[in-house]
Amino acid sequence: MVDAICKEIVLRKCEIDGEIATIYFGGGTPSLLTNVEVDKILSTVYSTFQISENPEITLEANPDDLTKAKILEFSNSAINRLSIGVQSFFEHDLKLMNRAHNQTEALECIVLAKKHFENISIDLIYGIPEMSSEQWIANIEKALSLNIPHLSCYALTVEPKTALEQFIKKGIVPPVEDDVAQEHHAILIEMTEAAGYDNYEFSNFCKPGWESKNNTAYWQGKPYLGVGPSGHSYDGNQRSWNISNNPIYIKKINDGELPLEREVLSTRDKYNEYVMTRLRTTNGISLKEINENFGLIFSEYLSKQMIQHIDSGLLCVKMDAIIVTKKGKFLSDGIAADLFMINI
């Protein structure tokens, strides 16, 4: 697989013009990679593309993979940021979500990681069935007390065909309540704000200056190249995504063929994506940018569509930017849909 990934990188050399600012090992379980494998991929990247001076290089990791030895190994590579899928510091939640790690591992790996990495992010999940507000507060407190500079927090989504879905269907586990998720979200905002974190994107919180540069690029509509099975790429005009099947992926790459599908975005698609992603961030939507990038027809449409939401207190205008208010935050998907331009 690593060989195939390196081959793909070389095959796609011409897809990137400028400098690469961030590198991200994510999706699946990249923490299974050995130090040697990480180095191999990184050196291929370095020899193929131009890399900026201080790139952000992140590795997504599961707590059960982050043994003392492994952390040491990674710290000797070019990786300078860890994103750890902690999910929760409580055994009950971890069992419910079918996680491989336990609460001890969750805590220990962070303590160990902190010795070698400064730039650490952890994932936490709220709105879990039977999770009380007190438990959620305890989770946040734990994260804050560990002095982690970056948090990504998501509400639990019950995916189809999972054990959890079956449990809920059979009544073994109570369903996830929206009200509870919203309450947890409110607690999260309040506690992180008090601790000096920025809620710079709907699900992301950081101490000033510790934003994920990689993820911020997505929300700013910057181009990116994703390699490996299921890797998604965007060149500013078209999106493409690799096939998810591993053996087919490897075979095609070995045949010198890119196993991907493409979709060209229309101006309207780009406008809609801009609106959708920007509403999630503190930057908000800039009417000026809309005007420059999409034209008057879009900025006028947007101005017309946003009035009702400003009137109802879900959106507000700050300087040039249109941002969601605290009240609107939880509803930003619906607001985005209202601001979308679509043809029927």
Partner: peptide, 12 residues
């Protein structure tokens, strides 16, 4: 309606 907004929203 509020749910979807709380899920991940990255490149893919």
């Amino acid at each position: 309606l509020r749910k979807d907004v709380t899920a991940k929203c990255y490149g893919g």
